[in-house]
Write a protein that binds this DNA or RNA. Structure first.
Lengths: 317, 317
DNA sequence: TTGTAGGCGTTATCAA
DNA sequence: TTGATAACGCCTACAA
């Protein structure tokens, strides 16, 4: 910047004014500076600017896995909001590890991000994060202990809708294949299932199998539930992964069972039969979380707490 | 840091030494500093560090669409290499726009990233990037003009393998549905197709339809090729998107045609019939590009130019 | 409309 | 083994 000033024959401060588009500069001077900048290939050093202003115009995002379509859609939505507000997004995958989550958050904080969006690896207390003094919003899963902002899918409601849909089609014996009950979302979906069958007066307490599932374990459960005088006629699966596993198990067994999956899957309409799903809206989760974060960053601390984003039953076939 | 120094009763520089794990500090002093840091919740300000050292330990990545599984897998691979080397990854989607590509690159350069990985929006000359004096590697597509590093899939070879596979299964009339010929990759795949049918002595010059395709346009082409005395029996599709479009068109028409798709798709094994594909390896593309970039960043400028990553024919059903 | 001085938090240099 | 001091490049405050 000093070089530019010399080249243009003006002071440092004048160059700074031109770079930042401050008004009080004569057009003629401004042009001279612009030319000098172009000639020297000048580009403002954001580190220096950040050091001086204390603001980085950046936001950190920690998800479980950037390569998972759910999180990459969420990431994209957050990135879009950030861009809208002139902020840069830093993102990373915690891969389910609380240590990685903390180390990512730590790296972001060292870079002085203005805010954080975090998919917590565990549902444990995130008071440590609150203590950092940087606004943050949790997504997809809440954290116990210290109350804070979170944006969640309507997990239980989604599964209830699935069960009601199946019941409406005449099914009485409906099973639930959930993922590992260690996941908060898996618990919520199981709860939704139990509430729904209970409300409808369906017999199902013994038709719940939590994961993690392999094709073999899913096949064994489905076979068990299918045996006897009153066999299973439909099943709800707890997430994308379980859905795929269950479909493979059914195909291998040559069985046709009505399936409703939690999470939408690509090509669901090309399967035989087409797959009905409870679709989450990762983009809306990300968008909502990011907008909420910017509100917090702007100093508005009104109404902190959980926000629930609805799911949508997509009936196919 | 000054506060920590005061709290520990040492000089600023000593705290800096402890923070950076420099050796020449008495363990006792070091402990005192550590305690003071913990008490004050100290965290190094990377902006200041970057300003002073001139290095940011960060890399910028520009892809077409972060939410596309191909690019999100690529991103993850780049992120993994960055983490391995203690670097932070900044990423963004250009959404196919050269302007957005430049503005992302510009934002990254203002933050003084140490290197760049870029999926070029256009195959035009990227001399402007080379002129910035920051090491960079292009991925997925090359750029004309100024020679530079690039990591590319074996597009033509992949399609050749697909055609040979189909010919090996007895097909003589094979079609090719490609995406928009404005894309460099679409051109390469068409070239691979034409070379393959030519080498095998198959009649196919009139069985090429480039996109963009809708279900209707794909259906029309397939119907045309399927009419007459010597109808089409198999088709190769030019990418993920075209594959899905073609499958929908075939389903709607109630036709069964042997299809080999470029790009792997989730649930391909659950389709009826299971879908054979030419799989790219986005993770290897990203990994290769990132490692190459770190070599360049390390000052090794040996053998600049394109690197080709093989594709893999995944036969199903 | 333009310029000068000072400091943001860190690391490098050199001295003690 | 430790400390004093000077940058790094920019922006804020104030002065001309």
């Amino acid at each position: 910047m000093l070089d530019v000033a010399r080249e243009a024959g003006v002071s440092l401060k004048t160059v700074s004014r031109v770079v930042n588009g401050e008004p009080a500069v004569r057009p003629e001077t401004s042009q001279r500076v612009e030319r000098a900048m172009a000639a020297l290939g000048f580009r403002r050093n954001d580190s220096a600017r950040q050091l001086r202003t204390g603001r980085t115009a950046s936001v950190g995002l920690v998800v479980e896995d950037l390569a998972d379509p759910f999180y990459s859609l969420l990431t994209k939505a957050v990135a879009r909001v950030c861009e809208e507000r002139g902020h840069l997004l830093l993102s990373g995958s915690a891969e389910g590890s609380p240590e990685r989550e903390r180390s990512l958050v730590s790296a972001f904080l060292a870079r002085r991000v203005d805010g954080l969006v975090v998919v917590p690896a565990l549902a444990d207390d995130h008071g440590w994060l609150a203590g950092e003094g940087v606004p943050f919003v949790l997504v997809d899963r809440p954290a116990g202990g210290t109350p804070c902002d979170s944006v969640l899918s309507d997990n239980a409601g989604g599964v209830r809708a699935a069960v009601e849909h199946l019941a409406g089609r005449g099914h009485r014996r409906i099973g639930f294949l959930g993922d590992d009950a260690a996941f908060w979302t898996a618990q919520q979906r199981r709860r939704g299932f139990l509430e729904a069958v209970d409300a409808l007066g369906l017999p199902a307490a013994d038709l719940v199998g939590m994961g993690p599932h392999t094709v073999a374990s899913a096949a064994a459960l489905l076979e068990g539930w299918g045996a006897g005088a009153d066999p299973l006629t439909a099943v709800v699966t707890g997430n994308n992964r379980v859905t795929v596993t269950a479909l493979r198990a059914l195909r291998d067994a040559g069985r046709r069972l009505e399936v409703v999956g939690f999470d939408d899957v690509e090509l669901a309409d090309l399967l035989d039969p087409p797959l009905t799903v409870v679709a989450q809206d990762p983009e809306r989760l990300g968008d909502t979380a990011a907008r909420l974060l910017f509100r917090r960053m702007g100093g508005d601390l009104e109404g902190m707490g959980p926000v629930v984003v609805p799911t949508r039953l997509v009936v196919r076939g």
